[in-house]
Design a protein around this nucleic acid. Structure first.
Length: 489
RNA sequence: GGCGCAUUCGUCUAGGGGUUGAGGACACCUCCCUCUCAAGGAGGAGAUCACCGGUUCGAAUCCGGUAUGCGCUACCA
């Protein structure tokens, strides 16, 4: 590679950052970092009608959250700016005019209505869809007449009627199109804004983009872009079309497939490192066995040669598993820090705020192997914070236990524990195990009612550790409540 | 309708002419560990490599066709 690597992520602020989009950003970012090149963010805000107000912020926040820093773009600037296409309109207009004057583009005065009718007609007759080139063949008189009518024209590219346009896609190798299957597409809209085709070609050239890594949906547009590069005398970048990410039903991933915006994953307690790891493996692989890779390993190992050619279905379950792995790799301190806000926002409102960090610090070791997302901490560990536990009385009774034997067992525990001086793991175990024997119960038969009594659930962290964190008083109180429930049944 | 891209376990994927009776991961099942649930460990089940032809001594791997899926075919990106 002689030229320095310069790649761009070019989102359109028309919606929240979709995971498919973010995956494209990630591959660009990894590619740039791998080759020590530049990662540029360029905002393609050329669709005024579809613009969404906070989309830009959400996109930038998403990138930052995932640790994808950009060398040029919004908020950081750069010498190829501005990085908002809405601020570069003059450049596109000039280029469009140049193409018109050199005979590679023309003004089109066709009304939206005419275009619509033409299209309907084509569909009806099962003809090839596309602009019929009506205005391409306007005489000078007709042209000036249209001009006099005051119609603001669009500029269309004058696509060659014959020949072929091909290129070597870095992921799909040789791809060829017949020029006669391409229509005269719009370069400049009547509102003065460029279409994607014009803007991206102009900007990629001006910004000296070396490689265009974009989603496969752009593959069919690439010959148009190449024809423009040719007409303009620009050297085209290298192209690589990334496989798409689909939903479980194989259609384009969307809201009905569950969370599709990166923001939602963040809110659900997914970790950026898990997200990056998972997204990297959607369409790329290192070898036949590596699943867990750090950010640095990803940068070191990433290569276009190992990007797959097939669309991938977004597998939520695997992400969920991977998040659990990442979560368990966090240090105690880090996990604690990340869990705090989720507890603050996720615990029932009757729990007093602020939540004590010291207290949570004692809970974290008990739940870290039992949760897969940060948000789950709040639902899994709520009994550590609640005063009143809600559960079915029947849950208190273990295998082959009756109300009587359960009450008897809990009363025995109550008695033993109230006499206990040091309420710690070992003293609890040293007390309760022998007690089971005394009562002629197996450990499960004694521990499971006790677990339900103290936590309100049948699945919880290890009993003794849990009881220690809850404290003697609270445990005794909860056991008393449980006995009461059984007797009032 | 036209054009393009793709097609290996349910899913993500490895493998790109013989060492593959196709490897790994998620999910699923069994067992171990164990006070429950997890985590961890050990196993299991799961793919006629879309189909049909061809090339070859030999094809999941190369070629052609068919089918299916997806994408593009907008004054959206």
């Amino acid at each position: 590679m002689t030229k320095s690597v310069r790649v761009r992520y070019a989102p359109s602020p028309t919606g929240y950052p979709h995971v498919g989009n973010i995956r494209t950003a990630l591959f660009n970012w990894l590619f740039a970092r791998h080759y020590g090149g530049s990662f540029i963010v360029r905002i393609e805000d050329t669709d005024v009608a579809r613009k969404v107000e906070d989309a830009l912020q959400a996109i930038l926040d998403g990138l930052r959250w995932l640790g994808m820093d950009w060398d040029e773009g919004p908020e950081v600037g750069g010498k190829y700016g501005p990085y908002f296409q809405s601020q570069r309109l003059e450049l596109y207009r000039q280029t469009a005019e140049r193409l018109v004057s050199q005979g590679d583009a023309y003004y089109c005065y066709c009304s939206l209505q005419r275009l619509e009718e033409m299209r309907a007609e084509q569909v009806r007759h099962k003809q090839q869809l596309g602009y019929d080139r009506h205005c391409r063949y306007l005489s000078d008189e007709e042209r000036s007449a249209k001009k006099k009518e005051g119609i603001t024209p669009v500029v269309r590219f004058q696509t060659p009627l014959s020949g072929q346009t091909g290129f070597n896609d870095l992921i799909r190798s040789q791809v060829v199109f017949d020029n006669n299957t391409l229509d005269d597409f719009v370069l400049l809209k009547s509102d003065g804004y460029p279409t994607y085709h014009l803007a991206s070609v102009v900007d990629d050239h001006l910004m000296e983009i070396s490689h265009v890594l974009r989603a496969e949906e752009w593959l069919s547009s690439t010959p148009r872009h190449l024809l423009m590069y040719q007409a303009l005398g620009f050297e085209p970048p290298q192209f690589a079309h990334l496989p798409m990410i689909l939903g479980a039903d194989r259609s384009k991933l969307s809201k009905r497939h569950g969370a599709s915006s990166i923001t939602e994953y963040r809110e659900q307690g997914y970790l950026p490192e898990a997200m990056v790891n998972f997204l990297a493996l959607l369409g790329w692989s290192l070898d036949d066995r590596t699943e867990i890779l750090s950010r640095q390993e990803l940068i070191d190992k990433f290569s276009l040669e190992r990007v797959s050619q097939t669309a991938a279905i977004f597998n939520h379950e695997k992400l969920y598993w991977m998040n659990g792995v990442s979560l368990r790799e966090l240090s105690h301190e880090e996990l604690l820090r990340k869990i705090m806000p989720f507890l603050e926002s996720g615990l029932p409102k009757e729990v007093k705020r602020p939540i004590s960090k010291e207290y949570v610090s004692r809970i974290v070791p008990l739940i870290r192997e039992r949760i897969n997302t940060l948000a789950e901490a709040a639902t899994y560990a709520d009994f550590f914070f609640l005063d009143e536990l809600e559960y079915e009385t029947s849950m208190l009774m273990g295998k082959k236990m009756t109300t009587e034997t359960t009450v008897k067992a809990l009363k025995a525990v109550q008695e033993k524990l109230s006499l206990l001086e040091n309420f710690n793991r070992d003293s609890l175990e040293g007390t309760l195990r022998p007690l089971a024997k005394e009562l002629e119960l197996n450990t499960g038969q004694l521990f499971s009612p006790l677990r339900v009594a103290t936590t309100g659930r049948t699945a919880a962290p290890p009993l003794f550790e849990t009881m220690v964190v809850l404290g003697k008083e609270r445990c005794l109180h909860r056991i008393m409540v449980a006995i009461g429930k059984l007797l009032n049944k």
